[in-house]
Simulated scan of single mutants.
Amino acid sequence: MLTDVSMSIETGAITAVIGSNGAGKTTLLRSLSGLLKPRQGSIRIGDAELAGAKPLDFVNAGIAHVPEGRRLFAGMTVEDNLLMGAFARAAARTDLQRDLDRVYAAFPKLAERRRQDAVSMSGGEQQMCAIGRGLMSRPRVMMIDELSLGLAPVAVDFLVEALKTISADGVGIAVVEQDVAVALDLAKHVVVMDRGRVSKAGSSQEISQDHAIRAAYLGAD
């Protein structure tokens, strides 16, 4: 359960959400994408109030949610999985192809495997596909739950650089990340959650220099 949580996701910047298991990180993202309805409070993107709205309303407002575990559609190709990200858009085929080309430019491995069953790829490639599917909705804000979970370091490094490029193009990104070192490298802002509340928030530099955070999450004195 979340209590008195207040945070913002800046356009063109990356915000990391960190905290121990059960701190409320996934619940936060599910609330911010309409999968869970808050009992009270406000969720806004621009001038649109979304608290209590349906998940499709969140998508149409410009919020994309990349869930933990990727949740790709088995038995469907990489390209068909990507196109599912644009299901809510009444887009012409030329516009869809332009967006696919952008995703393939960001993730060249997906272009190589576009006709392959998406769930037969490696974990890193599946995460690329899940992020690409989110991008196909043309989001203003994209939220990613457990970016690096179960992935090889080389895949994580590639995804970190890809997300930095995506955010530089104007997309606000929120990442739930269990590897705090990755989170601090990736993000401009960091939100620390504890038992459903925001216990600390600040720049990645401020959070990285906090002795309590370093002791709890980085094993430092």
Rank of each mutant, 00 (worst) to 15 (best):
1 M>I: 13
1 M>K: 14
1 M>F: 02
2 L>V: 00
4 D>H: 09
5 V>M: 04
6 S>G: 08
7 M>S: 00
7 M>H: 04
8 S>Y: 03
9 I>E: 09
12 G>A: 06
13 A>L: 03
14 I>V: 13
16 A>R: 03
16 A>M: 11
17 V>T: 09
19 G>T: 03
19 G>C: 08
20 S>R: 15
24 G>Q: 06
27 T>E: 12
28 L>R: 10
28 L>N: 01
28 L>H: 08
29 L>E: 03
33 S>R: 02
33 S>V: 03
38 P>F: 00
39 R>Y: 05
39 R>H: 14
43 I>P: 10
44 R>N: 13
47 D>K: 02
51 A>E: 08
51 A>I: 00
52 G>K: 00
56 L>V: 12
59 V>F: 04
59 V>Q: 05
60 N>E: 15
63 I>G: 04
63 I>P: 06
64 A>H: 11
66 V>L: 06
67 P>W: 02
69 G>M: 02
69 G>A: 11
70 R>T: 14
72 L>W: 06
72 L>Y: 05
72 L>A: 02
74 A>C: 11
75 G>P: 12
75 G>V: 06
76 M>F: 11
78 V>C: 05
79 E>S: 06
79 E>P: 01
80 D>L: 10
81 N>Y: 10
81 N>S: 07
87 F>Q: 15
88 A>D: 01
91 A>Q: 13
93 R>T: 13
93 R>D: 14
97 Q>F: 13
97 Q>V: 14
97 Q>S: 13
99 D>T: 12
102 R>L: 14
104 Y>P: 10
104 Y>R: 05
105 A>K: 12
108 P>E: 10
108 P>S: 04
109 K>H: 14
109 K>N: 15
110 L>M: 12
110 L>F: 07
111 A>H: 13
111 A>V: 04
113 R>K: 08
113 R>I: 08
115 R>H: 14
117 D>G: 01
122 S>N: 03
124 G>Y: 01
126 Q>H: 05
127 Q>R: 09
128 M>D: 14
128 M>A: 08
129 C>R: 04
132 G>H: 05
133 R>G: 09
135 L>K: 04
135 L>R: 05
142 M>W: 11
143 M>S: 00
145 D>Y: 11
145 D>N: 12
148 S>Q: 07
149 L>C: 06
149 L>G: 01
150 G>Y: 03
151 L>R: 03
151 L>K: 05
152 A>C: 02
154 V>L: 12
156 V>Y: 04
156 V>P: 01
158 F>N: 09
159 L>H: 08
162 A>K: 15
164 K>F: 07
164 K>D: 13
166 I>D: 02
166 I>P: 02
171 V>C: 00
172 G>M: 00
172 G>I: 00
173 I>P: 11
175 V>G: 06
177 E>W: 07
177 E>S: 08
177 E>A: 04
184 L>T: 04
184 L>H: 11
184 L>I: 06
185 D>F: 10
185 D>C: 13
185 D>I: 08
186 L>W: 03
186 L>Q: 09
187 A>C: 09
189 H>Q: 15
190 V>W: 13
191 V>H: 09
191 V>D: 07
192 V>R: 07
194 D>Q: 15
195 R>C: 14
197 R>I: 10
198 V>M: 05
201 A>N: 09
201 A>S: 15
202 G>V: 11
203 S>K: 10
204 S>R: 12
209 Q>N: 14
212 A>W: 12
212 A>T: 15
214 R>C: 13
215 A>H: 14
215 A>T: 14
219 G>I: 10
221 D>P: 15
